[in-house]
């Protein structure tokens, strides 16, 4: 497959995963606005901005500490994370970037995939924060999440399992590892700076990963932060756990057709091996989970660079001819 097309699909996967992840977080956060105490709402915003490694609009988080402002400023923050076009991490930017990549590689997608994605894009194009805030912002985020799930389903049902499929999934899995490692790190960081973190802050994390029932079954109804982290990192049965995302990543890379350089492909596989070892073995040693998550994230960036150099932008002078 043409390198540039593969790269477009890879980024399509990454951007959609990003937009969905943020929508899931915002859905839980806007639900919390209805009935949760201010400290918890404050925690939620710290976690959100922490995992994006982004500064909130000036002053908004300080004001939030006062009850009167919590709703008013949540509006500013939600707008910043949802519709702000200059914020490259906003939901709008993610969907727009995914759609722009899809437009470049539309001939590699099934017609159904394009229609599905283009409709989501047209819907979000026509909305502003006022439109969604008036009634139920959490419904907007739930719909966005569902649309991206639908895209994944349509993709699974209609896309030819060629290399394009591999690179689309490769992008999704890498992004998922990056998002999860950043989010768990941000969760611990936010928990460290917030006084009286309630159990709800950890329950919401479980809900985000569709893991509440699994947690109850595996552990107990008592929510223990350490056990929550263990489950989200190491349980390979959980769709978005770190362990499972890494397994998928490894499988996608192994299934990708021969690369121009066997050496580079081997380096990528070894790197994934190191990442899996961090999650599956080092994690159990229970040393500092934040430094471990940060190492994982740094490896993820290296892996991205390796994939790019190996498949998309390799030097042509010594490349093999097929």
């Amino acid at each position: 497959m043409l390198s540039r097309s593969a790269e477009g699909l890879y980024w399509l996967g990454r951007y959609l995963e990003r937009a969905q992840h943020l929508s899931r977080l915002l859905r839980i956060q806007t639900e919390a606005l209805v009935d949760r105490p201010v400290t918890e709402i404050h925690f939620g915003w710290l976690r959100l901005y922490g995992c994006l490694n982004r500064q909130p609009p000036v002053g908004s988080l300080e004001l939030l500490a006062q009850d009167d402002y919590s709703l008013a400023d949540s509006y500013t923050l939600a707008d910043d994370l949802t519709f702000e076009p200059t914020n490259p991490d906003s939901v709008w930017s993610g969907v727009a970037a995914a759609r722009e990549n899809a437009r470049h590689v539309r001939h590699c997608l099934s017609a159904e995939m394009w229609t599905c994605l283009n409709r989501s894009y047209l819907r979000i194009q026509g909305l502003t924060i006022q439109d969604i805030w008036a009634s139920s912002p959490e419904r907007f985020y739930a719909e966005t999440v569902a649309e991206i799930d639908t895209f994944a389903g349509v993709t699974a049902a209609t896309m030819y399992r060629d290399e394009g499929w591999r690179f689309l999934n490769l992008g999704r899995s890498i992004e998922r590892v990056q998002l999860s490692s950043a989010l768990l790190d941000a969760q611990i960081a936010a928990a460290n700076v917030t006084q009286d973190v309630s159990e709800a802050a950890w329950t919401s994390l479980l809900r985000l990963y569709h893991a509440l029932e699994a947690y109850d079954r595996t552990f107990s109804l008592q929510v223990e932060p350490r056990q929550v982290l263990d489950l989200l990192a190491t349980d390979a049965r959980l769709p978005d756990s770190l362990s499972r995302s890494l397994d998928m990543l490894s499988a996608e890379l192994a299934a990708t057709a021969p690369s121009p350089s066997q050496q580079a492909a081997g380096a990528a596989q070894r790197l994934i091996g190191r990442m899996s070892a961090l999650v599956n073995f080092a994690w159990l040693d229970r040393d500092d989970p934040r430094s471990l998550l940060q190492r994982l994230n740094a490896h993820g960036r290296e892996l991205h660079d390796l994939v790019t150099e190996t498949y998309f932008q390799y030097p042509v002078h010594d490349a093999p001819v097929r």
């Binding site: 043409l2 540039r4 593969a6 042509v316 001819v321």
Partner: peptide
């Protein structure tokens, strides 16, 4: 003339 593919150059 070649194009750059994920598996190397293709005529």
């Amino acid at each position: 003339v070649y194009m750059r593919t994920t598996a190397g150059l293709r005529r």
